[in-house]
């Protein structure tokens, strides 16, 4: 009941966006910014490597990796945010995230996201969560579930189902691919 009230209180400020719930989060660094994912959607963390590129895909789809016999697509989060490709360094890792596809009868798909470094698992309480600002973070506001205060700095709580929406990414790749082809044709 209190939670419901909180959401309603914050709705006008949050401009209709869902606010993140309290709970455990996995924090990671990417492009100097601190982000967090709900612990329940994070499956595992692996080292970056052995990635196979898939042609004709936008830059934010890095390719696919072999995760113990399954082929898992890897998304470059920084590129998805429109900030250019993530440079690969020693500590670069891949977080395997489970996404639920609502459009396709709730089937789940595993996706990997490239991160500069994985930090820690933290407990974030409801009072530490602020609604996302409508601008200023440099990424699309609907990608953000909320901002969590932690050690005097803000952690961006990502909305996994939006950021890693397979439908949206597939559409984007198709459109991007078409535009590329068009450019190619003009160039040719």
């Amino acid at each position: 009941m209190t939670e419901l009230a909180t959401i309603q209180d914050k709705l006008p400020v949050a401009q209709g966006k869902t606010t993140a719930m309290a709970g455990q989060y996995l924090t990671f660094t990417l492009g100097g910014e601190l982000y967090a994912l709900g612990i329940l959607s994070s499956k595992e963390i692996i080292d970056y490597g052995n990635l196979t590129e898939v042609p004709m895909m936008p830059v934010f789809v890095r390719g696919v990796i072999n995760l113990r016999g399954s082929v898992v697509p890897v998304v470059d989060l920084l590129a998805r945010f429109g900030k250019g490709a993530t440079p690969i360094a020693k500590r670069t890792g891949i977080v395997i995230v489970e996404t639920i596809n609502d459009a396709d009868d709730g089937s789940t798909q595993d996706l990997g996201i490239i991160v500069d470094a994985v930090n820690e698992v933290v407990e974030i309480s409801q009072e530490d969560i602020e609604p996302a600002p409508s601008f200023g973070t440099g990424i699309r506001p609907d990608f953000i579930n909320g901002m969590a205060k932690r050690n005097g700095r803000f952690v961006i709580l990502l909305n996994v189902s939006k950021v890693l929406s397979v439908d949206e990414m597939a559409t984007l790749s198709k459109v991007g691919h078409g535009r590329e082809l068009l450019l190619d044709t003009e160039a040719g």
Binding site: T52, V54, P55, M56, M57, V61, V64, N66, G69, V71, P73, N101, D104, Q109, V166, D167, M169, A170, S173, K174, H177
Partner: peptide
Amino acid sequence: PLGKLFSHVQGVGGSTI
């Protein structure tokens, strides 16, 4: 199978390990 994300990729029918 490569999955939905790659469904539009022409000329690639799947993947293998």
